[in-house]
Amino acid sequence: MLIGNFKETYADDEALFRTPASRAGLAVLLAAALVFPFVASDYLLYLADLVGIFAIAALGLNILTGYTGQISLGHAAFVGVGAYATAIAATRLGLPFWLSVPAGGLVACLAGAVVGLPSLRIKGLYLAIATLAAQVIFEWVFTNWTGVTGGIRGLNVEPAGLFGFAFDSDRRVYFLVFGLLALLAYGAANLFRTRVGRAFIAVRDRDISAELMGIDLFRTKIMAFMISSFYAGIAGGLWVYFARVVTPESFPLSLSIQFLAMIIVGGLGTIKGTLFGAVFVTLVPEGLRAVTQAATRLSPDAMSWLAPMKEIVFGAMIVGFLVFEPHGLAEIWSRVRRFFWLWPFPK
């Protein structure tokens, strides 16, 4: 049983991982993440890369929606902007990936600043509609600005390379994706240890009193949009080197909704929850698909009614989270942790 968590300096108390147990947990997690690509199958690595890329994008959306309270239905479009910018930088300008991916992030960041402009005047559902418009407009541009985006056929990109080492398989891309995910998650967590992140939360909770505390609302909201779409843009850039082709249908509205589902299921306004949510929303449909395939082997005509079941079960799980655990997986995690701290005493 953990009696207390005592600190001798304020610096210790301000650390991200405050207990020896949480630091040990982090070390184990990092070790597991390093071993994983050498033992996992190709299929699992493919899924892991997908989870990592989505997690980076979802971190961005959680900064904007979960922490700053600005709802966005256009997050997939920013991932798309980043992906196209990266692909164009790589193919037309011949930039290496360590320049083209940040370039994708920056272009998405600028697009985010523009889309964020109406947020000073409109909130809530109205802002959701404004960002939905952005989603539709960007999708249209991806399809129809053929000279730049390659239209429906899209753009093909060579694998990322570093000093002659080509990131040409899911196993190799894994290191790229999870290296950046670790870096960006660390950055996001840092953000909320300082005045910048506190201002975001203040704007979400009570914008008028935030302003009277000296927070410039417009600047803060635009900043949240820019950081959020920068994360989306980086995810888009990684998508390019993961899929090696960019096509317009990769960034539909349904993906934007999926990002929202990740942060709601994981926990709005938590970094840990974002990661849980990205894993859950990406892997659960895959798991359900595996179950339906197994069932089909037993009875061939099961497919016809099990396939729609998959969607229904997934939808029901999300509704279940909204009703029974509105604080998401992150809250479940802390409850489990509290249980073990207090063990063997109940409650």
Partner: peptide, 23 residues
């Protein structure tokens, strides 16, 4: 007050205008 924050973070937020850390 900002309800999603702890007491400590609420108080820290008060100092916002006097702090300088950029993004």
């Amino acid at each position: 007050l900002f309800e999603g924050m702890t007491v400590l973070d609420n108080i820290k937020l008060g100092a916002h205008a006097h702090l300088e850390t950029g993004v």
